[in-house]
């Protein structure tokens, strides 16, 4: 079956994400530090994206490093002053290693898309998004893709969304790539990680306090992904609202579920 997917920033511009982060930070005290930091990251990513838009990109990170590296340096230096001590310490180590350390870090992440690494993800998300917009497939890494991985870059999903659109009524489910922000359709009653379809082993955890968010968990593989229900709150920006629902992450982890892909605040 041909996969119908949408490349690029279908969930709003960088500015829309930044505005949403500021709005949600003003509304909730507990998640404010996370959202303020994430808003700053989004600003840095937008600057990176603007720089990359003006540059000819080949799709091979190794060849594009000359353009990407200065952006990475800017992000590292900003995060060193505004981020938590753990990240600041790491940046100290990376900076001490010079340009070659940054290159190695980026290339390593680009080839593995490791779920729990911060720097590769924060720097290369704008790069991957730009490649998706240009329909320029990443050249220098394995692109093994299936319905659980992004059809463009083979990255894992950051979150799932329920949305109306096209000929669909009600809440069609789509996954949003954690790397290039491409979205692709995915079946409703199915585990995003292991593909389990037995409804008795799939659980949806929901709180009215976070009405448009839920945790889609699987009792077989014990993994979960958060779902942003855009049919309940159309103004939500999935990437940002996912971070704002941090309490659900903590709740799920305390019950032994493991998140499929950490977001940029490490939850």
């Amino acid at each position: 079956m041909a996969v119908n997917f949408q490349a690029g920033p279908d969930q709003g511009s960088w500015q829309r994400r930044i505005d949403r982060a500021a709005q949600l930070a003003a509304e909730d005290e507990a998640t404010r530090p996370l959202l303020v930091f994430y808003g700053q990251l989004l600003g840095l990513q937008r600057d990176t994206y603007d720089t990359l838009r003006k540059a000819p990109l080949s799709g091979s990170l190794e060849r594009d490093l000359d353009v990407v590296r200065p952006c990475a340096s800017a992000i590292l230096s900003a995060v060193r002053t505004t981020g938590p001590a753990l990240l600041a310490d790491e940046i100290q180590e990376i900076v001490a290693g010079g340009d070659s350390a940054i290159d190695q870090l980026l290339l390593e992440w680009w080839r593995t898309l490791a779920a729990n690494q911060f720097f590769g993800k924060v720097v290369l998300q704008p790069y991957a998004q730009r490649l998706a917009e240009l329909s320029r497939r990443p050249l220098d890494r394995e692109l093994y893709t299936n319905e659980f991985r992004c059809p463009f870059c083979a990255g894992p999903p950051q979150l799932s969304m329920l949305q109306r659109g096209g000929e669909l009524e009600g809440g069609g489910r789509a996954l949003l790539c954690a790397t290039c922000f491409t979205s692709w359709p995915f079946r409703r009653v199915r585990c995003v990680s292991c593909g389990e379809e037995d409804e008795h082993r799939l659980a949806y955890f929901h709180s009215r306090a976070l009405d448009h968010l839920r945790v889609d968990a699987c009792d077989v593989c014990r993994r979960y992904v958060k779902t942003i229900d855009l049919t309940r709150l159309g103004v939500a920006v999935p990437l940002v609202d996912e971070v704002a629902g941090a309490a659900l992450d903590v709740w799920a982890r305390e019950r032994g579920y493991e998140k499929l892909e950490l977001n940029l605040v490490g939850l």
């Binding site: 709180s207 659900l248 709740w251």
Partner: peptide, 18 residues
């Protein structure tokens, strides 16, 4: 959090969620 953020206030919030 995995990246070093203090999540104690969020854990407190999570305990209030029904």
């Amino acid at each position: 959090s995995a990246f070093g953020f203090d999540i104690a206030p969020i854990a407190a919030q999570a305990r209030t969620l029904k």
